[in-house]
């Protein structure tokens, strides 16, 4: 089948999409945006987090056809050209990246959190990030990055 959607501001029409295919697969394999990751494909890890019409979702759990005519923003769409988004910069500065497989999903999730709440408290940060697994960092420097980005935004 055919799916038309806007990804990171660019309109795309994709043919030959399988009916049961996920938005994640479509983004990675058809649109050529492998930034969104595929650590579990069952909604548990958040490495595939993208915006679907302004809502942060697991792209692995959205059927590609459900994204027809929608606007998708992926991690690749957050920076302004060479200029990193403040959330991205905070991840780099705080040392919140190790292997980096969780990073794209976390960057989008934190971007979403800070868009909704400018000054999240500890429990709030933990709750908001509970759907993003990271196996390397123990999360501590990721929390640092959230606080750094929040501080910068204020």
């Amino acid at each position: 089948m055919r799916v038309d959607l806007e990804v990171n501001g660019v309109r795309r029409s994709l043919d030959g999409v399988r009916e049961g295919e996920s938005l994640l697969h479509l983004l990675r394999e058809r649109v050529g945006l492998p930034g969104s990751k595929n650590a579990c494909e069952q909604g548990e890890c958040g490495s595939c987090t993208v915006y679907l019409d302004e809502t942060a979702v697991c792209a692995c759990l959205v059927a590609a056809g459900q994204a027809q005519d929608s606007r998708v923003v992926t991690v690749e769409g957050l920076a302004d050209g060479a200029e990193l988004h403040p959330v991205q910069r905070a991840f780099v500065e705080a040392g919140a990246v190790q292997c980096g497989f969780c990073t794209p999903g976390l960057v989008v999730t934190v971007h979403d959190l800070l868009a909704r709440t400018s000054d999240p408290g500890e429990a709030e940060i933990r709750e908001a990030l509970a759907g993003n697994l990271c196996r390397c960092t123990g999360y501590e420097k990721i929390f640092d990055a959230v606080r750094l980005a929040a501080g910068e935004a204020r």
């Binding site: 492998p34 990751k37 595929n38 992926t74 991205q88 990246v97 990073t103 794209p104």
Partner: peptide, 17 residues
Amino acid sequence: RRPDAVAKVRGEFAFSS
């Protein structure tokens, strides 16, 4: 800082997958 951090936060770092 990690030399690969920028590519990783941008989603541009190429993992084997």
